[in-house]
Structures are given as C-alpha cells and as structure tokens.
Amino acid sequence: MLTVRGLSAGYDAVDVLHAVDITARAGELTVVLGANGSGKTTMFRTISGIVRPSAGSIDFDGRQLPDLSADSIVKAGLAHCPEGRHLFAKMPVEKNLMLGGYVRRRNRGRVRELLEHVYELFPILHDKRHQPAGTLSGGQQQMAAIGRSLMSDPSLLILDEPSMGLAPLVTAQVLDAVAQINRDGIGVLLAEQNAQTALRIGHHGFVLAEGRVVLSGTASELLDHPDVREAYLGV
C-alpha cells in the first residue's frame, strides 16, 4: 500500500507538484489521469526516488520512501516503468530483463521464475530475446520495459503512460497485459491518456491538474463524472 501525503516536488526549486495526496491500495489498479504537464511523471519520479520531494511524505508498506535510495526502493518492492521506457537499447532483450532482476540477483531460482513469467505474459519477447532492445517495435519495447520492471518482483508497479505513441490495437494489447498483471496480484499505479480503457480495468482513480489532485473516486464514479467525461472521454 502506497500513501502519498502533502507531496510537493519539482526541479531547480520550482515546484511542479503542490501538496498531492494519493493512495494506491495493495493489489488494486489505481489510475492517474491528467493532461500533459499536470505533474504525473514528476509524481512518479519522486515516488521512485529519482526526484527528491521538497515537502510531504511517501509511505510504502510502512517505510518512508524519501529516506531510501533509488535502489533500496526497488528492493522494497516498488518498480517504476518510466515514460519513454529507458531500455538498454544496445543490449539484447533478455539481458534487459535479467538486469531488471538485478536487485534479486542473489535468488537465481526466483529470477528464472520471473523470467519465465514475463515470457508467458509477453511471448513475443521470448521470440526476440536475442535482439537488441532498440531494434524492437514500439509496442514490443513497451512490453520489454514492463517485463523488465516485473523482473524486480514488485508488489507495486508504476506505469507511466505505457501506451504513449502506440497504435490503438497495440495499446489494447498492452493494457490487457496490465490488467492481467493486476489480476496476478500486483498493485498497479497507472498514468494513462486512454482514460476510458484505463478506468475500465482500474479500481480507483485520481485526476491531476496543474500539480494538484482535483478529483478522486472509484473508477466507476470517475467514468460517470461529468468533468472527466468532458475532459478525457470527449463526451
């Protein structure tokens, strides 16, 4: 369970997030909606320790994440699959995945299991395991990035716009996989432009605007909310 309270953060002393409160319950799929520049990515980067918060607390299963280094955060069970994927482009797919299991490297058996699990979820990655990650199509790269995050055996997976730049059919595939990951018991915190699809597979949701939470509720409440319908569903 992730509880974010009064979180402010930004770059070079200019805050992008202003006192954000967000909760992602264990095992649930929580959706974060918001236009470009609303602070979703900054919030995720702060949670995973890449950006230091200027105020507020981030509690993850009883531990304060801002006190931990980025690698301890991964060890604690929080994986962040970033916007833009950040794969190791020149390394083969399988090496990318194995490096995803870096923090679990002492438990070889578990890493093997996780790798098999990722290949079950994304069979195409098994076919392309010897190819450099940078030569894959956009959708396959996204799958590789999600797979790499899963290799750290997380209890919460942060996915920052996994469908960005993908064709509609590929987007559907990727989001199906996200729903599957969640059904397998991994909590997901998902930022997504496809509000409708995301809310359909999600349990709870938050709407960010200009670095503040402006709306929150269950997924079905948000789906029916007039503001959400107008802003994100084009109704």
């Binding site: 995973s48 320790g49 890449i50 980025a70 690698d71 955060i73 991964v74 060890k75 994986a79 962040h80 699959c81 970033p82 994927r85 950040h86 794969l87 190791f88 490096l99 995803g100 870096y102 923090v103 790499r148 995050s149 290799m151 750290s152």
Partner: peptide, 8 residues
Amino acid sequence: TGSSLVGI
C-alpha cells in the same frame, strides 16, 4: 535513468 529504476 533506466539503470537507477532497476536498482543499479
């Protein structure tokens, strides 16, 4: 960034 996020 990718390295940090996998815990390196």
